[in-house]
Amino acid sequence: MHSVIRIILQRLALGLLTLFVVSVVIFTAVNMLPGDFAQAILGQGATPEAVDAIRKDLGLDQPPVTRYFQWLGGALQGDLGNSFAQANFASFVGADSGVRTTVAQQIAPRFANTMFLAAVTACIAVPVSLVLGILAALFRNSVFDRATNVTTLTSISSPEFFLAYVLILFLAVLNPMLPSLSNIFEGMSFGERLEKTLLPALTLTLVVTAHMMRMTRAAIINLLASPYIEMARLKGLSPMRVIVKHALPNALAPIINVIALNLAYLITGVVVVEVVFVYPGIGQLFVDSVKIRDIPVVQACCLIFAAAYILLNLLADILSILSNPRLRHPK
């Protein structure tokens, strides 16, 4: 067990290092965006004095390196800064209410929504992909296998908004079973929330299933020529048992990695689906913030996306390691 813990600690340290590098990249990239917040908010008629005042108020006049370390220092303490857009510029007319919305306050509910959508999608997509992948491997080269492959490939190849509208057409318009708008707000019951989330979740399921299902199928089929699979068949075991009990445990590592990649996508890449269903997730907030150059929010979103990728891949690595009995039970 000792070696496993060491490997996990190594991966964890590497993950943190990656996150640090990514934070530098994010900060640099965001600061290279053309135009700045002060210009954007004051519009064409801005006087240079007003622009300077806002820039100074927001600390934008500081050199980038100083700003980076201020930001990083804050982020490490859980303070992601204040949102520019929500700042109360009334102070400029002498009526500062003293209230400022922090980035964390702004992102938290959106992020929770995104996580909820990702979780619902994962609960549908992962089991469906695994079962379809296992069945496709079991009945490989049959009509079922081909049909599954064609269907999932079609759905992954279609644009997300198209899939979304097709689902809306069939499940909300022609057969009004589900709401076509996912306007979620605080204080909704879990059931209501789930109902409103179901259509976007189904859309995303169609998007991510193909990848996971095909990897499951391929990883299992890849093992079917192994001597231990032949041995299992020669023990007179049923084909289903051969695949589930003998092939699947050895095929877990690549499958876990693909699942992690797709879950990360669900957290970071669902802007289009959010827009179609008017779902108040983090993707929309991110795009809006980029539009108005609300730098603290953009940076915080990027950092969360990066952390999600790194964490999920880390988790996948750890689970892959744990799925290997050679590492779990050293000699």
């Binding site: 192994s226 001597p227 231990y228 032949e230 041995m231 299992a232 068949r233 020669l234 023990k235 007179g236 075991l237 009990k245 003998h246 445990p249 050895n250 009995p325 050679r326």
Partner: peptide, 20 residues
């Protein structure tokens, strides 16, 4: 198979499932 006819393979290291 397995019950009345059994098989012993050339490489036991490859023919035992590493996961069990």
């Amino acid at each position: 198979l397995g019950k009345r006819i059994a098989y012993v393979a050339q490489s036991a290291a490859a023919s035992f499932n590493p996961a069990h």
